[in-house]
Design a protein around this nucleic acid. Sequence first.
DNA 1: AGATTATATACCCATATCGGAATATATCAA
DNA 2: TTGATATATTCCGATATGGGTATATAATCT
Lengths: 113, 113
Amino acid sequence: MARRPTTADPFNAVAEPRRRQILDLLATGERSVNDLAGLLNLKQPQVSKHLKVLKAVGLVNVRGAGRRRLYTMNGDKLKPIHDWVKRFERMWAERLDRLDEYLKELQSGEDPG
Amino acid sequence: MARRPTTADPFNAVAEPRRRQILDLLATGERSVNDLAGLLNLKQPQVSKHLKVLKAVGLVNVRGAGRRRLYTMNGDKLKPIHDWVKRFERMWAERLDRLDEYLKELQSGEDPG
DNA sequence: AGATTATATACCCATATCGGAATATATCAA
DNA sequence: TTGATATATTCCGATATGGGTATATAATCT
């Protein structure tokens, strides 16, 4: 067998950074394909293809508007990822009081609070 | 270019269901390779290979113990995933009061509370 | 040293990927 | 209809994957 297709589930679809960027933009509202291509400095065919993957796993919806197609985000499909990751939340929350972790936070410039 | 390697980042490493299962088990404590293989009905080489990927992205640590190698989980590396997904949390939380979403919850047998 | 156990690595193969480039489809305008 | 714009699809090529199987390495025991 080979690697699981990107269209298998949101986990695989979202593993591609470009697609996360697209979702980041769609989270703010409806966007057309060329709109996204311009904002992300991508070529139109690649954007169409990424959107096709996102559509396949239900992460986006489309609406025809004249000769354009406006995409919106469907965040619900991210919930399984959230649920899975959340179970490990304590693994980085509980250790904030440990000195080594604290120092790491300081070094990386993050807010330890 | 081809698809981003599984070792590129935790997003890609965790897109594989087997690796999520391995992390689920390691979250409960240290495990040896054969231990994991037995619990997941996988062959030893596949487990070693999955662990290699998880190690490459820092999601697990190893400790030699005699002729065995005990793996532990390092949850910190999941934080970027958590942070990214959490930004969309309102997209499924805010809509719980909408009728269609509510019905979906009921149909899927989930707790709408 | 030789035997046994635990784990890692190497090799093969079918499959999917992502970007690039070209082309097809669709919608509108004149 | 012809032309322009917006999007989707097709073909290509380099690359990595994950399972299977066999083999190599490592540590322990007698």
